[in-house]
Computed example of a mutant assay.
Amino acid sequence: MNHNRLLAYAHLLMAGGYLVFTLVGPWAKRGESYGVFSSDGGTGFGIIGFILAIILVIMAVMRLAGRSEVVRGLGVEQLTLIVGVAAWLNLICFIVGWLPIFEHGVGRRRGVPGTGWGVVGAYFTVSQIPLLLSPLTLGIPSPSKGIKSLSDSKRHAFSATTIICGVGLIAFPYLAWVTSGSIELSAFDGRNGNPTSGPRFGYLLFAIGVTLVISGLMRLRPKGLAEPGPNLLLSHCLLGAAVVALTMPLGIIISCLQRSGLDIGVGTWLTLASCLVLVGLVISENRTRNAVGV
């Protein structure tokens, strides 16, 4: 049995464990334990986590079946890394961003809801995919052939759009992300005496936005920007950043639709739009370059 097949089985084991923990274990403790789909449990972030778990299992099965390409311009290995990072950070965003929005309990027992063991188990299984398995499998094959270079006009267009999306991810978290009655909270706001808190995604989105702006500006140079590796192109990295950023507004939107008393702010919708534009952009670039990678 070769290394690729062993790593594919390890990928299936980790993805299967992530799916089981996501579905079976509790996501939040508010006096009682609540599961992945409950409005008091995983809510929107649980639904996203479940979808990403299914994708990771499908990717593992495709690897075992010998498939190397998901769609034109996107390989199994690259999508596994992208979805693995998104699933991992989706759990962190749930813990840091969503759970603290509402306090639970009364008196001395009042505080942020606790994290269920389902989230803890899912975190430790899914984190092994982007941190360990994907870098190993991306590094084993020889550099792929047939990847096309972008023309200067397309490179400039892709770069300019990347910069615009990056500026959006920097600016839109400062707008209202959630509203509760007369209270409007951005993605940077804490509780500050209010009964609700902002989702606290602003710093991560700000970092992603700055990275996008820098990469877009560097690609505008005459020689462009060097690719991260022979089997991992810049467009794959940008797709990863877009999917990670997309989980935050999408999780908030689904969660707010499930829960009464909390409305969706304009900043959430604008951030979602920026992420969708960026996803469409990098998918188009991958198809143009036939950037399978492995």
Rank of each mutant, 00 (worst) to 15 (best):
L133G: 03
S274E: 11
T80V: 06
V213K: 00
S180V: 10
R110S: 13
Q78P: 07
L220C: 07
P113A: 10
T161P: 11
H236Q: 09
G146A: 04
G73C: 02
V292G: 07
T288C: 12
V282A: 00
L7N: 02
S255K: 03
E69W: 15
I163P: 07
L79H: 02
L250E: 07
T115K: 08
M248T: 04
I95W: 12
I47H: 05
Y34L: 11
M59F: 04
S284T: 10
T125C: 08
P143Q: 13
V279I: 15
T22W: 12
L246Y: 04
A86Q: 01
E227R: 13
P195H: 10
Q128R: 11
L12G: 02
V106K: 13
M248C: 07
S68P: 04
L204P: 14
G31L: 13
G293W: 02
A122E: 05
G16M: 05
G146W: 05
C93N: 15
R5E: 10
R200K: 14
V76N: 00
S180P: 11
M1V: 15
L6Q: 15
N4L: 10
R67N: 09
S153K: 15
C165N: 01
I170P: 00
C275N: 04
G121N: 01
L262W: 13
L270G: 01
R287H: 09
L169G: 05
G35F: 07
W177M: 13
P228G: 06
L217C: 06
R287D: 13
G114V: 11
S134A: 10
L79K: 00
